[in-house]
Design a protein around this nucleic acid. Sequence first.
DNA 1: TAGATTGTTAATCGATTAACAATC
DNA 2: TAGATTGTTAATCGATTAACAATC
Lengths: 207, 207
Amino acid sequence: MAPRDVPYIVVSRLPLYLRALTFLAEEGKEITSSQELGKKLGLSPAQIRKDLSHFGEFGKQGTGYEIGYLQQQLKRILKVTAKWQMALIGTGDLGRAIVLHYGGFERRGFHIATVFDRDPRKIGKKLGQFEILNSQLIPQYVGKAGIKIAILAVPASEAQNVAENLIQAGIRAILNYAPITLSVPHSIQVQYMDPVIYLQRMTYYLE
Amino acid sequence: MAPRDVPYIVVSRLPLYLRALTFLAEEGKEITSSQELGKKLGLSPAQIRKDLSHFGEFGKQGTGYEIGYLQQQLKRILKVTAKWQMALIGTGDLGRAIVLHYGGFERRGFHIATVFDRDPRKIGKKLGQFEILNSQLIPQYVGKAGIKIAILAVPASEAQNVAENLIQAGIRAILNYAPITLSVPHSIQVQYMDPVIYLQRMTYYLE
DNA sequence: TAGATTGTTAATCGATTAACAATC
DNA sequence: TAGATTGTTAATCGATTAACAATC
C-alpha cells in the first residue's frame, strides 16, 4: 500500500502541496492544476506531477486536480488524518510560547498532550492547562500513551541527553528547537528549527 | 573573490558546519577532520571536503582543520562577521517571544533593530525596549537604516502583502514564520519556519 | 619513515525536466 | 472536435561518492 522507496526529497514537498491546496480551498476554488500549484510554490509543473505519481493517479487529463480530493489523499499519505499526540520538553520562553499561544499545531492536526521540565522550581506548577511534569517521568508518560512525537525546547547542552531519554521511552520523531545536530538511530526522525541556520543561508547572498 | 555558481545545496550546509565547529570549540578542541565533522553531522567526509573546496583550501593534509581558522573562514563566506540589523514585523505571541526572550539571535550575530505592527492598539506601546511602530512607516525606517533582513511574524493572510511592502522598502531577505509560500522576485531570499511542515515531513515515516 | 588526511578527479548515482501519447 | 492537462518515459542535468596522489 505505502509505496516503497519514495525519495525523501519528494516526501519533503508533500506538506507544501497540502498547505497550498488548503489555501486554494479557503479561497473557494475546487479545481487546480500542476501548473497553478507550481506557480504558487515556485516549482515546475512536471515536478509536481512526478512527485504525485509516486503515490497514485489523482488527477484527470484535460482538467487537473479536484482540490478536496487531492487534499484528502495527501493527508492520508502523510498520515495526518487523525490528530497526533505530542510531548513538549522544556518550558523556557520558547516552550511557553508554543503551549500558551501558538494555535497552529492544534488547528493543523497536532496536539500537545504532556509537558515536561527538569527544573524543580517549575515541576508541579501549571503551564496553561498543563501540570509541568518531572522530565524523569518521561518513560512513564510517553511510551504507553501513544505519544510518538516530541517537541524538544531545552538548551543545546541538554538536548542530546533528553533526546536519548525520549527515544528510550518510545518517541519516534523529534522536532528539535535546540541549536545542535542530534545523534540518533536511523529509525528516528528529526527535524530542525534553529532560525539562525536559516538566516545564515540567506546572508551568503547579501552584500 | 566570492566564487561563482556555488550550488545552493552546498551553501545551505555551511551554517551547519559553522555550528558544529562552534560546538567543538566550546569543548576546547582545536583541530578537527572531515571525518569527525561528518560523523557529528551525519554527512560523508568526502562531501564536507568537496563543499569546502568550492571556497578554498582550509585544511592541512595529514592533520585536518584548525577549528578557529575554519570557523573564521566560514563566517567570512557566510558574511556573518559583523552583526546584521533586522526588522521584526508582527507583535503577536510569536513576535513577542522572539523579541523578549529569544537570546539566540543576538548571541549569534543578528540584532533586532525595529519592531512593527499594524494594530492601532499596539502602535506606540512598548515591546521590551522597543516602541512598536506603525507598519506604514516601514519605508521610512527600513531602507536607509541599512536593514536588509526582516522577520515576518504576521498572520498568513497578511504575509504576502507585508512582504511586498518590505521588498519595496529595500528588504533583501525574509525569515518567514507565516504558514504560506511567498511570491517574491528571484533576487529576494526567503526562508520558511512553519513547524507544521516539518512535523508532516516526519509523520509520513511513522505508523 | 609510517600513518593520516586533504583536495580533486572521474565514476556513480539520483533528481529534474522535456516531450508526448492518452484522454477528459 | 479543439484545447487542456495528466501520467510516464527517456534524456538531461547535477550532486554525491570512491579513490588516490600529494603531503603534512
